[in-house]
Design a protein around this nucleic acid. Structure first.
Lengths: 335, 335
DNA sequence: GTGAAAGCGCTAACAC
DNA sequence: GTGTTAGCGCTTTCAC
């Protein structure tokens, strides 16, 4: 049923090679032949077989974007990566790993590695070993702070500085008892960096630091933020600000504050992280750290392309796109 | 660099065929040979080449989930499809089409068709012709109401009935002037069905129907819901309820109502559609139609698998998973 | 039980 | 400019 080069060649009365040349925009083909072949290609609805092409020359024109989940931040990023990839003639397929280590490893290593030309991955649950081994034979660009010590290209904003900026904003507007949501007992990766930034800022400003002000979570979802906020209010009813390690946590916290009858920002100011679209529609709109997502996506695609086409083969690169603090009504009154 | 069957065969001192048999769990291999080969496979880190496998026997074990965008509803659905696919040994790759017709068609037809074994698609911008042609050679299951007339398997909830149920709920709680957000001048697909359900319910209840109560939108995003709500309030300040064709529109509408100083649900009751997670965290929490997403995902994967393995080759099937109305504070006071 | 050889659709050399 | 051929890694007859 599917039509191959051979079919086109037969129908057009030329050789397979000629059809291949036309399809691949090879320059040295006479205009007449080119047109005739193109007509047949069109008519028969020929589509090149990507598997065969890749088997033959090791390129499929497809890259994978491997994400633990399709939460808003990743969804927004994915949209950009897809668009940017497309501009470079690449098809971006999203692999939603669900953070399962086994799956992530196996899939990334196996399926992906020889179906795609490279992978942009946010490795929630891959180990350094997994990634390193895979990176030997398959171009990989890492997203985010996890595994930043592995010798592979990666793109991430400076989470320590960004977290500090968020907390300093809270201090600037006069808050003294600033809690955090998203911490962990044994922090690593992103959590460790944001936690460090949070603590650094408190220290610099001479504000209280302590476990009592830290709301530990397991996941970064709305419900976790809600639960953590409820617990914090119980423990420290005197808190007057919360810095949440991502927006979903903050949105959950907002609901908990609303239900507890605390006014935001009058009683408690809230800052999130990621600046997802939802921030502009919450009640109140959420102040947040906005990573330059376009830059993240562009850098990631760029680095990957360079590795794929061999333009770059030197040391692993680390790119730090900028971020900014977007101030909304969850920290400064008004609309 | 990548290790092939041949390498394993050489290292294990057996033929290629034997390695292939072991890898594919072919039963008639002596235990001794099997163990030896497995050890070498492990040691060399052999991964079967999916491209070659697919080229050879037409199967890759990969299916595509083609979605116009990764909005919350699709993201939640994707998560389920990935999980269900995995349980059946399938890798699900998400193709974010951005609703671009050209892209969607080309990609779905070209790349996907011979990289994957089948496609589950929510065809926002594919034409009936595109889909039909593709469906000739490549198993496809359609999601949602668009293109429901095309002779391909599809899965969608009964949007007409669901929309009616939402509106009747509003009537039941005493609302008389019920607007809609998400309508279109020339409705088709999902919009047409929900619009019909909305109007049917109004007619049955003897309530006002008219263009003045219809908030047209272009997209189904928060901002569109916000804009439409602002316009509706301007036009019909007397409205006491709004049925939004999806939750994002409703969340935008909630913000517009908040800014306009209208209390929800006291002044205006709001109902959404899809029951995304965000509904439970908005202010107030949003009453919504909850499609049985698990059933949608399961049916879609199931239908696709049947087409792929040829278990089913008869007429196109239409499956209508159930839905329910989830009542929250945006329609009935309290928490 | 295991090996040898052919071929899936494509492209890169090389001939014509 | 265009045709011929070999082979990417795999599975699948068919011998052994």
């Amino acid at each position: 049923m599917p039509v191959s080069l051979k079919d086109v060649a037969a129908a057009a009365g030329v050789s397979i090679k000629t059809v291949s040349n036309v399809v691949n925009d090879y320059p040295f083909v006479s205009a007449a032949t080119r047109h005739r072949v193109q007509a047949v290609v069109e008519q028969l609805g020929y589509r090149p077989n990507v598997s065969a092409r890749r088997l033959r020359n090791g390129r499929s024109g497809v890259i994978a974007l491997s994400l633990p989940e399709l939460t808003p931040y990743f969804a927004e990023l994915a949209e950009l990566v897809v668009a940017i990839g497309e501009r470079r003639g690449l098809t971006v397929l999203i692999d939603q790993t669900g953070g399962r280590r086994g799956h992530e490893r196996l899939v990334a290593a196996g399926i992906r590695a020889n179906l795609t030309d490279g992978t942009i991955a946010s490795p929630l649950s891959m180990t350094a070993d997994d990634v390193k081994r895979l990176g030997q034979t398959h171009p990989i660009v890492l997203l985010g702070e996890r595994l930043s010590h592995v010798a592979l290209d990666h793109v991430a904003i400076d989470s320590v500085a960004a977290a500090s900026a968020a907390v300093e904003h809270l201090a600037d507007i006069g808050r003294r008892t600033i809690a955090a949501i998203g911490t962990a007992r044994r922090p690593s990766g992103t959590v460790a960096q944001r936690q460090r930034g949070y603590l650094n800022a408190l220290r610099r400003r001479g504000l209280e630091r302590g476990r009592a002000l830290q709301g530990d979570v397991v996941l970064f979802h709305r419900q976790d933020g809600y639960d953590a906020m409820v617990a914090l209010l119980e423990r420290r009813p005197d808190l007057d600000a919360v810095f949440c390690f991502n927006d979903l946590l903050a949105l959950g916290a907002l609901r908990a504050l609303r239900e507890a009858g605390r006014r935001v920002p009058d009683d408690v100011a809230v800052v999130g992280f990621d600046d997802i679209e939802e921030c502009r529609f919450s009640a109140p709109p959420l102040t947040s750290i906005r990573p330059d997502k376009v830059a993240v996506a562009e850098h990631a695609v760029d680095l990957l392309c360079r590795r794929i086409d061999g333009t770059e083969s030197g040391q692993a690169q680390e790119l730090l796109p900028p971020y900014e603090l977007v101030v909304r009504a969850s920290t400064v009154g008004g609309a």
